[in-house]
Write a protein that binds this DNA or RNA. Structure first.
Lengths: 236, 236
DNA sequence: GGAATAGTGTCTTTCAGACAATATGTT
DNA sequence: AACATATTGTCTGAAAGACACTATTCC
């Protein structure tokens, strides 16, 4: 339905962008995906993967596309939800750029290379992009600091209220791993017996029937998140 | 503030709009503010108050401004929070218009005139704008139907989790009124004694010390919402 | 056998839900 | 006195929280 083309000189307009704050869990550490930002105006700082929205795509589509292009992550493997739209007039030195930010959850892909373990504990993933621990973020480009803060708060809210933890974990996992994940994400220590009772009675997880034997010690039963789609569960 | 040196012919851009879904409570009925939409393309349908975002304002500022201009409501009296950004490519027949939607809560102003009580039970407020019962919405312009649905869901979530009910009620109120409000908003009936115990033990309300005598029957103590700012309360 | 990890049951306390009688005002 | 509305307390069942020992495997 092609309509009267809008004349930008008479209409108010803005450049529309998306940014995606992608979280993943790596050995009990919550990490976010950072990309180098090459614009001169922001002087070598990093930022979340993102970019401009094309005239023919919605912001959701743009977010998925940018995940692939800018972060090399298959959007199919990422849970995305809209986070917040940032529209401060001067948030981008280039001009009026409004950004629709998305929250993303994923499992860290296998292409992750743990180079340079000495230099803090950064995980690199090629081309300078990296998974940075959420509690050790550098100063970011644009208003991505604020974005990070909003995203972190929202992530915790959602983890408490839904079964989204499943999107941060591998297909199957032991209850110990699940508990470690919650403890580290929510920053509180939980009783093992009560925790196991809860997650099973609430129907958050179900046994796969397999078990994992690893190192010494008794083998652990494997579980999966019971339902694949996002479900409201008043959790912990 | 002359605007950004962006050349629209080379950059992807969109027209940026805001829409505000303002809720108010009138005699236990949840109502939203509707305005006539005059664009030919949407043929006499109504929509939420809104409009384009100026190059010099954030979407928050635009939302406040539009509340005043389009709905004649003092933004100071309205609680606003960002709801969702709607960016489907064809959501506006005029072209690419992306809308940042806001959720608004307010107390119905005194300028409300209950004309035409026969014609359903619409409350008019001058210039064709009206407060329409949320459970009796007509088909709306653009994608405002979807907006209404998102806003309704979010409103109920927020009412359950915070003290925002205070933004829908007058300064002080009786516990009966508070309970009626919850019952109608959440669509469930609550036990009087348990309800009163809860709201007081949770610290949602505190007595003002005054009482209201009205009609026959025992006078009721007046309460106010204990804290003015938004607070998380796992409510009902 | 010792070390390491996984797994399990009970008791207590707290909170949610069901339930009905009394108090205070008006007419 | 009749009526209308507001206010209050107890009992019961369910869920949350504290708490320590047994089971299985590897070395």
């Amino acid at each position: 339905m092609p309509s009267p083309p809008v004349d930008p000189s008479t209409l108010r307009f803005a450049v529309l962008a998306v940014d995606v704050v992608v979280f993943a869990l790596h050995e009990e550490t919550l990490r976010v995906r950072l990309n180098p930002v090459d614009r001169p105006a922001v002087a070598g700082r990093e930022g979340f993967p993102g970019g401009l929205v094309a005239p023919t795509e919605s912001s959701e589509q743009a977010a998925a596309r940018r995940l692939r292009d800018k972060a090399g992550i298959d959007p199919e493997t990422v849970y995305l939800e809209q986070l917040h739209t940032f529209s401060a007039v001067d948030r981008d030195p280039r001009g009026r750029v409004v950004s629709v930010a998305y929250l993303g959850l994923t499992t860290i892909a296998e292409d992750v290379i743990d180079t340079d373990a000495a230099d803090s504990d950064t995980l690199y993933s090629g081309s300078g992009a990296r998974w940075q621990p959420m509690d050790d973020l550098p100063a970011l480009a644009y208003d991505h600091d604020a974005m990070a803060s909003v995203a972190g708060r929202r992530l915790r809210e959602r983890l408490r209220a839904t079964n989204l933890i499943g999107r941060l974990l591998p297909e199957s996992f032991t209850l110990t791993i699940l508990q470690d994940a919650f403890e580290s994400l929510l920053g509180e220590r939980l009783d093992r017996r009560n925790f196991r009772r809860r997650v099973q009675e609430l129907g958050l997880v179900e046994p796969t029937g397999e078990e994992r034997r690893e190192g010494r010690g008794r083998p652990a039963a494997l579980f999966r998140v019971a339902e694949a789609d996002v479900r409201a569960i008043p959790l912990l």
